[in-house]
Design a protein around this nucleic acid. Sequence first.
RNA 1: GGGAAGAUUCCCGAGUGGCUAAAGGGAGCAGACUGUAAAUCUGCCAGCUUCGCUUUCGGUGGUUCGAAUCCACCUCUUCCCA
Length: 401
Amino acid sequence: MTNILDTLKARGFVKQTVFEDELYKKLGSESVTFYIGFDPTADSLHVGHFLQLVAMSWLQKAGHKPIILIGGGTGMVGDPSGRSDMRMVMTPEMVQHNCDCFKTQMSKFLSFEGENAAVMINNADWLLNLNYIDFLREIGVHFSVNRMLSAECFKQRYEKGLSFFEFNYMLMQAYDFLVLNRKFGCTLECGGDDQWSNILAGADLIRRKEGREAYAMTFALLTTSDGKKMGKTQRGAVWLDPTKTTPYEFYQYWRNIDDCDVANCLKLLTYVELDEIEKLCMYNDERINLAKERLAYEVTKMVHSEADADAAVNQSRGAFGDGEELPEKTIDKGITRVVDILVAIGVSPSKGDARRLIEGGGIRINDTKINDVNAAISEPDLSNGFIIHKGKKIHFKVSVK
RNA sequence: GGGAAGAUUCCCGAGUGGCUAAAGGGAGCAGACUGUAAAUCUGCCAGCUUCGCUUUCGGUGGUUCGAAUCCACCUCUUCCCA
């Protein structure tokens, strides 16, 4: 049986580790309890979280026990990294609501039952009632400011400024790891590579304070080949919640990624075997599209369902090939002008935008280009339904309610 | 506590009384070319009842025929000194 660390490395997950040799042996010989932290700042996860969850599921499948730590404690204060944003104070109810949403979505990738069931824990349980003096005496003494300042994550913040709260973040996260180690025997913390300093601090703290082994491992962040964060679109993040990002849109997002990112995404986001990925991605011409289709299908199936993935494929055939199905939208009775319809179905954010789109020749109805800004849909089309195209990629079948 | 600078449209960043819905860049959208890719070139990029009107340049008042631009106060941010 192969060591899970080999698998993760081969697929490009692993960025940094501590005591890799020891960790390797441990992962190969026993069930390791590990954790990753998630901040409950929204009621849905996005694709960045998805990568972490896939990594977790690999580990769980190999027999290790996942702990999902929800940052309810830090969420009560608000994430300081969103600089200009209002620091929205989250009520316990909101945090609870977001946790519930997370759990539903996560249960598709992780098992909350069985021998090594995943568990979800909220750090508000211990962070909120922390006594400041006790914390300083117990935890604070183990941290050297000089060392913290030399950490990469703080260096980048020098110019922008760094609040004491943010500086404390490292201690809180380190403390989380310590608590999980004491209460649940958690010995490994994972996370995105941007969390390296914080994770390392926790592992260090446990070793120093408890004299016990503790390990750290960071995973690659989901970025494009030129280093930009993936998962952003015109309309914001790509969410896992089907009401925020429909399965069709989700499918299309992956179908449209750059050539050079396909292999990476297949390795990190799907369970497709490595040699198969290699075969799929060996082309530099249009045959690479098969790899994109496979990626989009697999990921949609994982996040939503096989039925949703099949539907998305069929709708895509209709939109881009010669299939029958198309994603559908309905409009209220009485809306007839093209401009109004574009706004009604959410293709344009405003009428001005819709007008410009028509003026620029970007809109077609039933394969006829619309040139007149005031054009309206004719009666037979209104009752029978019609197809609206925006550019080359957005196609909807529209019918009147 | 003392001193200095600053807050501009999604982001970065010009603008210092009318010609400014506000330069330039990035992102985004559309057109051409393609493979539902990239690169490149072109156009668009506050809202609306669109030959016009309305709302925008941290907040509130004020000066002016007229302010993003001048004055006052407030809020917040950054920097220097303690």
